[in-house]
Measured scan of single mutants.
Amino acid sequence: SASLEDVKTAVLGLLVILQTKLYTLPASHATRVYEMLVSHIQLHYKHSYTLPIASSIRLQAFDFLLLLRADSLHRLGLPNKDGVVRFSPYCVCDYMEPERGSEKKTSGPLSPPTGPPGPAPAGPAVRLGSVPYSLLFRVLLQCLKQESDWKVLKLVLGRLPESLRYKVLIFTSPCSVDQLCSALCSMLSGPKTLERLRGAPEGF
């Protein structure tokens, strides 16, 4: 439990870093931090981490990651405290083949985003970082199938509809809506759902 406290501190630090690096160059920093966060949550489900502190780590990670939004130009952003989304000039939600690297070039400044813009690109060529939603999407499927803490599952179920409104997140990387529907149906009809959940409301 003591070591998990250190892990929790590290994860919180990564969330803060991602919130900053999403809007700064090099964009590969945001890509790497995002991948680290998603990989860490995957390990929770792989090794069945069920301690309360592990659940709190997942809760905080999902609470942040499910706020990711994308505009029509595929640029990622996060809402501010007033709910207004600021889109990044440097990070996009497109999935890119590994051989192309985590970044790609664009020939010049991008068109203005639909929300308040981030800082304008400084040079004639900007390297865009790929932060594909499919990585998070796979972890969300694991959550629906394996999550043991009701608070975490409730958060994910509550945030998913709003995330799905931003269709560009889903359609720019390999996210299977069929698998999502299947996971939701299995969660509702499967007898093991109630068996594994802690803290579920009576009558769920």
Rank of each mutant, 00 (worst) to 15 (best):
S1V: 07
S3D: 10
L4K: 05
D6R: 00
D6F: 04
V7C: 06
V7R: 02
T9N: 06
A10M: 00
G13W: 00
I17N: 03
Q19C: 05
Y23E: 04
T24G: 07
L25C: 13
A27M: 07
S28W: 14
S28H: 11
S28M: 09
H29D: 08
T31H: 07
R32A: 05
E35L: 09
L37T: 06
Q42L: 10
L43F: 10
L43S: 15
H44D: 01
P52V: 02
I53W: 02
A54Q: 01
A54N: 01
S55Y: 05
R58Q: 00
R69G: 03
L78V: 10
P79E: 09
N80P: 04
N80C: 10
N80S: 06
K81I: 11
K81F: 09
V84K: 15
R86K: 10
F87P: 06
P89F: 04
V92Q: 06
D94I: 03
D94H: 07
M96E: 11
E97H: 10
G101M: 11
K105P: 13
P112N: 15
P113A: 13
P116H: 15
P116N: 15
P117N: 10
G118M: 11
G129Q: 10
P132C: 06
P132I: 02
Y133Q: 03
Y133C: 05
S134L: 04
L136V: 11
F137Y: 07
L140H: 01
L140E: 01
L140M: 09
L140C: 08
L141H: 04
E147R: 00
E147S: 00
D149P: 01
L153Y: 02
L157G: 00
G158A: 12
R159C: 05
R159V: 05
P161Y: 06
E162Y: 08
Y166C: 14
K167E: 03
L169T: 05
I170Y: 13
I170T: 06
F171C: 15
F171V: 09
S173T: 06
S176E: 08
C181K: 01
S182Y: 06
S182G: 13
S182L: 07
A183V: 10
L188H: 03
L188P: 03
P191L: 08
K192Y: 12
T193V: 13
T193L: 09
R196E: 04
R198I: 10
R198G: 09
E202G: 08
F204T: 06
F204R: 03
